[in-house]
Design a protein around this nucleic acid. Structure first.
Lengths: 241, 241
DNA sequence: CTTGACCCTGACGTTGCGTCAGGTCTTACA
DNA sequence: TGTAAGACCTGACGCAACGTCAGGGTCAAG
């Protein structure tokens, strides 16, 4: 017969945990001393090891209790279910990790990033996930491959250039420059280069993005693009052909 | 000015969550109506989106509050820390997944596995992890490669054969058969074959296992091996040379 | 004026214990 | 044999992020 302290030391857990297991009905002490001390039999130690093993495999204490109580339950099946749960959690955390890496790649390293900037990046990433429904897996793979060939630094540069370019186009439009003017033509060419950088020249990809912007005016506004501006730049590059 | 219900619907969360954020000081309502209804300004919605973005990145609500309050904190650094935390959790879950797969491979598929069997497998796996400290990474890699070349089914067969073989040796010893007898010699040869199957003939690996058993008599007892039995089988195969 | 939809606060439940708080028991030492 | 240090007891709060009642006002439509 061992006391709680001895059991805890042998199993490498806390006395409090043993109290807890007892309250849950997982491991009641074999008996009590006259003064009320918990006394554990040798087989209780084995049982405790079993409990801890199952706990380490990620089962909840309630599940472990069921494990011992239910006679007609299938350990193999339980393990398979547990494996599925763990795999799902891993998948979730992996996509979270990817998201964090994306954000890290897109914000400057020192204290120069404001919280709002970070949040905007995250919002954009959510929009990108939403956008994925507009493309086939093959198209997505193509865009991804293109992004990798450009490199992380390249992507960052391009993402900084976009808003500048859009601002210039808007300024040109506001100042009444005709789309056929040389300045606007230069902007239009650069626009097409940037588009080609991720579309790879696939017109379906470009159309998918257009469709997305049309159906999500909020996102378009966020980028500083509206119908007028897009028509303006389009007429610029169509005038070139 | 929006009500809680409107805010919740727009953000895709529950009214209760908004109550919670308010209690934490994360997002107090801009004002209250005469009757005490929460009223939110447009900028509150933006703030809420920010909160939810950061929450989706895995930050706790307390961290998010600090994120907005602390002026002099570095978002980039915070993201890096968060990435590390997530990566660590993934690593932990991956080793858990591996453990579950090991267990699954080692127990029979139908309801025929008893809970105790499962627990024994888990205990052995913990012992194996402990055992890893006795070997160099190169040795561990070698053992692992050997296990893979044998295949999962082969490993299972061998693991079932070991206790049988040990039992036979013990029976022979108990019945007084001399180690040089033909029967014991056959057992000794099979023993060496099984040892060679994971050691690959590397004597350092064998010595590591011996050392482990000497320093963990409990584990040896679990396997049914003691000093006498090991001496017996050793004298059998040394008599052969 | 009623009814249904919406809002309020307060409080308990979840998971696996950690961490006091206040009091009893045991044991070793003077 | 007295006492002080440990070890033990029960009870209760805390944590993270809300879900889910409970009990009771408020608002808009019919």
């Amino acid at each position: 017969m061992r006391t709680v302290g001895q059991m805890a030391a042998l199993a490498g857990i806390s006395v409090r945990a043993l109290h807890h297991y007892e309250k849950l009905g997982l491991l009641p002490a074999a008996s009590r001393s006259d003064s009320g001390y918990r006394l554990y039999a040798p087989k209780d130690l084995a049982r405790l090891q079993e409990i801890l093993s199952l706990r380490d495999l990620g089962f909840t204490l309630a599940e472990i209790r069921a494990w011992f109580q239910d006679e007609g339950h299938d350990p193999h099946e339980a393990m398979r279910l547990q494996l599925r749960r763990v795999s799902e959690r891993i998948a979730g955390l992996e996509s979270l990790r990817d998201a964090l890496q994306q954000v890290l790649r897109r914000i400057p390293p020192h204290g120069s990033a404001s919280p709002e900037q970070v949040v905007r990046v995250v919002e954009r990433m959510k929009a990108m996930k939403d956008m994925e429904r507009y493309f086939t897996p093959a198209q997505l793979a193509s865009v991804k491959a293109r992004g990798e060939s450009v490199g992380a630094e390249g992507v960052r540069v391009v993402e900084r250039e976009w808003p500048e370019l859009i601002a210039k186009v808007r300024a040109a439009m506001a100042s009444g420059l005709p789309p056929e003017s040389a300045e606007v033509l230069a902007l239009a060419r650069r626009w097409q280069e940037l588009v080609a950088l991720f579309s790879g020249g696939d017109p379906d990809i470009v159309r998918g993005v257009e469709r997305y912007y049309q159906e999500h005016p909020g996102m378009a506004a966020e980028m500083g693009i509206d119908q007028d501006l897009y028509q303006y730049i389009r007429s610029a590059w169509s005038s070139e052909q």
